[in-house]
Design a protein around this nucleic acid. Sequence first.
DNA 1: TTGTATGCGTTATCAT
DNA 2: ATGATAACGCATACAA
Lengths: 340, 340
Amino acid sequence: MATIKDVAREAGTSISTVSKALNGYYTISEEKIELVKQVAERLGYRPNARAQTFARKATRSVVLLTGLKKDIAFENPHMFEILAGIESSLREKDYSVTLRHCDIKDVCFLSREIMSGKSADGLMIHASVVTKELSMILCREEIPHIVIGKPDFRSNLCWIDNNNELSGEIAARRLMELGHRKIALIGSLEDDRISEDRIKGVLSELGEPCIAKIIRGDSTIEEGERMGSILLSEPNKITAIICVNNLLAVGCLRALNEKGIVVPDDVSLITFDEYPLAKYTIPPLTTVSIDVYDLGVQAGKLLLRKIKKPELSIQSYSTLPVLVERHTTTRCLLFEQDTV
Amino acid sequence: MATIKDVAREAGTSISTVSKALNGYYTISEEKIELVKQVAERLGYRPNARAQTFARKATRSVVLLTGLKKDIAFENPHMFEILAGIESSLREKDYSVTLRHCDIKDVCFLSREIMSGKSADGLMIHASVVTKELSMILCREEIPHIVIGKPDFRSNLCWIDNNNELSGEIAARRLMELGHRKIALIGSLEDDRISEDRIKGVLSELGEPCIAKIIRGDSTIEEGERMGSILLSEPNKITAIICVNNLLAVGCLRALNEKGIVVPDDVSLITFDEYPLAKYTIPPLTTVSIDVYDLGVQAGKLLLRKIKKPELSIQSYSTLPVLVERHTTTRCLLFEQDTV
DNA sequence: TTGTATGCGTTATCAT
DNA sequence: ATGATAACGCATACAA
């Protein structure tokens, strides 16, 4: 295996010239650079990454700390989609991600071990494992980091998340645009923060007069179906329903089917996220979705900036939701006639 | 930041003693080991991983080469579940995985770059990006590797996969056990190797007399529905259906529902894989599934062995399918009466 | 059992 | 523009 020494000898120069030539220092003459590159090519020289890492005092890598228990990829594919995004933006700058399983119990120990052991230049940490203690450590020791998801406590952590409240607003606004004025809302229970945020957004956009009813229950298909039936048995005529997630929407769709109500002609239905079922229902669901891949891309870029300039204090970043209009929403003919 | 030098000075010994004490060399006396550990602890000493990596001439890491395009995590969560398994078995031995996007076009270049640049000790490569040329390189240069999935050509590569043919056999056998003798098979098109393997397994177990019909089509819900209807309109009374994958099963289930046929009382239905819909249908699907996480665990272990002993020539390994009996299969009452 | 000395392959500083 | 050389922090062969 050829080393930098061999290249230097063959090219008749010093190793420092070789190093500079290959790393694009502008103090080396064009001819030397050409020469060195040719020799390197001829000898099949590849810089030893381990030595580079050591000499440069930087690994050009970050580690992602997150739960990786069995079935995680099926229960939470979002995380891996984010990971794919992260990888892409890091790769662009010649950085790499390494994956590390992590409990909430050992996140502090691990973070310390990784950073003080210098096995990575920065940390990405899934919000589900961050603690206040960790937040202290990261900030006090000025560790370049970014949390994936919003921590559920106040801190100086740097985090990135999607904006569920905004998603709620977008869903509501779209229904309004389509002429709907009697809108019901099927939510999850109060301890589901995502659900609460979306509901908040919906309400802020809709205003009281348009809300026909809010109803909450467990986040399952069965509960969605139950709540859907309740909604339909009410005297107040509803023209559209917002379901706070996929499972509730599927359940609700079933309830509508059973009662012979045609979607979207009789009632429009809108929900959030692509996963797990949005495109498999009949008709496929209109949703307000997140570009999770892009979330990862942004997370990677942010962390890279923090690594270059640790004093930088970016705090948080939210990605924009997008409306994916499939086949459960349509113009409300009822009110259409009023306005025309 | 304390280095090994500092520890040596504080402990009043040499750095080599410190190194040995901390790395469990048995030539160091108990007392010295105790002393060194205490000093190290007191100084908060952490070995510099970059220096270790350099001195040891090993990174204790492997890289996973696979496609990571947008939406990959939703289209192919299996790969990430495997990844989680890989991480777990590597972590146990203090190794780590780093993730790297890779096209089929640049897999050779990348593999070479990573290995000759010494940025990893071994390679895991997804079958979808391996080529014959790559296979030559890996074997000729004796690169510790393992391919995730079976390469679609003969080679000396080391690979790991699940056994779809065996899955087919298990599905068939289970239906037989339940007393079914008139069984139909809904498959994907001939170019779908997974489908073909499963069909092969089913046929080998079932034998001609039990097969009522084989029908093939595109791997979509709609096609599954179409094929299901065809099956049901035949005069030959079917008591069970095997669908080669989730989408076809869901479509078939729809066809059955439409005709008012009750599953599993009138007809049993069995399919393969958990993803994407097996547990969301009514009733939830009985499937023959793969423990993908375990597939990853095994892959990790195998690669580790290859790294320790590169001359080892393990060639392939298959994981065992498991029957997940949910609610679309039941005993066949028709034939039950005959035999009792 | 312990210590000395060398090597690992680069990068980077400072002369020239 | 080029080169000599000192780091980088640890592991390890060998000497004691």
